[in-house]
């Protein structure tokens, strides 16, 4: 297939070869934005989940607010942050982080809530202290749910990073936006394909991590 009116092929492998440096740079940018946002999201979510678990009444308002944040389209959130933090990486990280909160908090709370009452009672009966029970029972048993939350948050964030191209960042999204503005199909395809590949690799990575950290959850009878 060739571009209408032009004779450039759809994929210009030469361009890819000439721009490997740039592709590597954008890979790091994409990964960096994703990692910082998800890690920050995890830290904030753990804090909020601790609050929600200790004071149950705070859980509905916490999910309500993070749910509304999640609903605001990213382009709008980047724009709304401009007058506050400017047009930079901070802006992107704040917005991306805020999108991870709902998913991670829900999974943290559901994971801890999902620990069977009988396990908690047995742990008490065996003589665990409250702290011991939390770290040795509740956290490991919630791990599959927690990792599942991180997995969804990460894959979602990889997709969203592409939109930060409007802030001059974008990771692979930079190629997509540049390609759209210059009608250079190769760049669009490279941006989209690499972004999907990155999301899939991270997805598989999390599945592998979950198996590694909770072998007991997969070996059914």
């Amino acid at each position: 297939m060739t571009l209408v009116g032009q004779s450039t092929p759809l994929i210009d492998w030469d361009w890819v070869g000439r721009n490997l440096d740039q592709i590597v740079d954008r890979t790091w940018q994409h990964l960096g934005l994703t990692a910082i946002s998800v890690l920050l999201g995890l830290v904030i979510s753990v804090g909020l989940a601790v609050v929600a678990l200790r004071w149950r009444w705070t859980y509905p308002p916490i999910t309500w607010v993070t749910g509304l944040l999640y609903t605001i389209p990213s382009l709008a959130l980047f724009a709304l942050l401009v007058p506050i933090v400017g047009l930079n990486a901070t802006n992107a990280v704040i917005a991306l982080t805020s999108y991870t909160l709902l998913i991670i908090i829900r999974n943290l709370v559901a994971g801890i809530d999902g620990v069977p009452a009988s396990v908690m009672e047995a742990a008490d009966g065996m003589g665990y202290t409250r702290q011991g029970r939390f770290w040795r029972m509740e956290v490991p048993l919630a791990l599959p749910a927690i990792i599942a939350g991180l997995r969804i948050a990460t894959v979602t964030t990889v997709g969203l990073v592409t939109v930060t191209a409007v802030l001059g960042l974008g990771g692979y999204g930079f190629f997509i936006l540049r390609g759209l503005n210059t009608f250079f199909w190769t760049q669009i395809l490279v941006g989209v394909v690499l972004s999907v590949v990155l999301a899939t690799l991270l997805d598989v990575g999390f599945i592998w991590l979950e198996r590694l950290l909770s072998p007991w959850a997969r070996r059914g009878r």
Binding site: S118, A122, G125, M126, L141, S214
Partner: peptide, 14 residues
């Protein structure tokens, strides 16, 4: 004190 309950409550991750 040993403690055994009906739901058994074995620790699934161990």
């Amino acid at each position: 004190i040993g403690y055994v309950i009906q739901q058994i409550g074995l620790f699934p991750h161990r």
